[in-house]
Design a protein around this nucleic acid. Sequence first.
DNA 1: ACCTGAACACCGTTCAAGT
DNA 2: ACCTGAACACCGTTCAAGT
Lengths: 241, 241
Amino acid sequence: MSLSSAGSGSRPRSRTAAGLPPVTADGIIDAATRLTVDVGLENWTVRQLASSVNAYPAVIYHHVGDRDAVVKEVCERVLMRLPIPDAGLPWRVWFGELLLGMRPVLREYPGAARRIMLLELSVSSSAIIIERGVATLLEAGFGEESVVVYTVLMSTAFQHIAMEDDRDQQARARFDNAETFLAYRNSQEKPGLAALAEALDESMEKPEMAAGYYGLIYEYAVARCLEGVGVRLEEIRSVTE
Amino acid sequence: MSLSSAGSGSRPRSRTAAGLPPVTADGIIDAATRLTVDVGLENWTVRQLASSVNAYPAVIYHHVGDRDAVVKEVCERVLMRLPIPDAGLPWRVWFGELLLGMRPVLREYPGAARRIMLLELSVSSSAIIIERGVATLLEAGFGEESVVVYTVLMSTAFQHIAMEDDRDQQARARFDNAETFLAYRNSQEKPGLAALAEALDESMEKPEMAAGYYGLIYEYAVARCLEGVGVRLEEIRSVTE
DNA sequence: ACCTGAACACCGTTCAAGT
DNA sequence: ACCTGAACACCGTTCAAGT
């Protein structure tokens, strides 16, 4: 934790002259993690990060590396915070807990879900989750399909969360065009658009419901995905016997 | 189609002096669409787009608007190319055809899937697909859940395609770290990582299979999602009776 | 080793001035 | 109305020079 003022607008003073402790890689990553919570992983600049630790941009490169290197380190930090369910639970319970439990953590760091999904194997902290996840599926009897099932379950979850992050950012644009669709509210020749308009209207009238809307979609998507994978498991089992 | 050289490095000459036809909004969007095919929606700059129609950047703003406005128009063009299955097909067949058919088109325009998903209701061309899609689900008996089911099916599909686009771009970084995981290939105490390493090894030895790997994941994800939704439909039906 | 300060090669966007 | 050319306020990144 840096003792200096963290405001992104503060002008960096001379470090040694002011008797400040030297900048460390850890301190930089801490600051980057905090900035990510505030503005999102893609929305802080190297210059902002530098001035938040009262240093020049080149100092970031000296201690950590380029922007991507800092981002990678932030993702490691986030991954380590994900709660991993107890080993030994049935595969469905284990993945249900994992996927529902990681959403609130990932949502604290907007943009992290997308980068983790992209970095995938490049982030060492993901090894633990991969090991436990694939092992759970192997034990459940998914056999050779375990890796594919793991990939589909995880990417479905991460992608939904990444989409929520993206949408939060441009909430404005979406609100503007909602009116166009609300016009179909009672259309009888366009029953599909009418149903959508009704759902849209309902979620806009009750803002506390709108806030939970993404959560419901997420839970629904995860539930359907687990359900579909479960059906497939029974197919595999019936063939194997 | 512009008669002038389209290379992004070409220096814009005087338009009227050279007797060139005036720049049009359509011409700009055509050029942006071609650039998107070549380098992806997020990877061309306004300056590149301008010089590809032999004009100054300000001309783009005059005829279409800022970068986001151009992107939106490109998305409209892409959406209109998506093949929509015949009405009247059973819901499962209809969505199966839609989701599997739109992938090759979207993949031609890297980055378009993500933006379309984000713009969602802001793009007018999406209205036809929404109407047909939700109407199909209503007829199938999904009732009030039709809108949620539509959202989950579509976002699962779009998100997977968006992820493929993202991964194509940074294929380099992923290859570099594959070696770390291949070390687990025959690990007995880490059966999960061993299974992943084996799948990874297999896909790297046969590059023609690796190319089709994303396609398989996509088909698997779509199939599981439809399966899961199908199970839910039977639950709804059994309650309604 | 660590930091400074300036510079480089870019961005998207705006705007007065020309035709 | 359409285009020119320059400018503004930013980026990420590099580098010689200081301590």
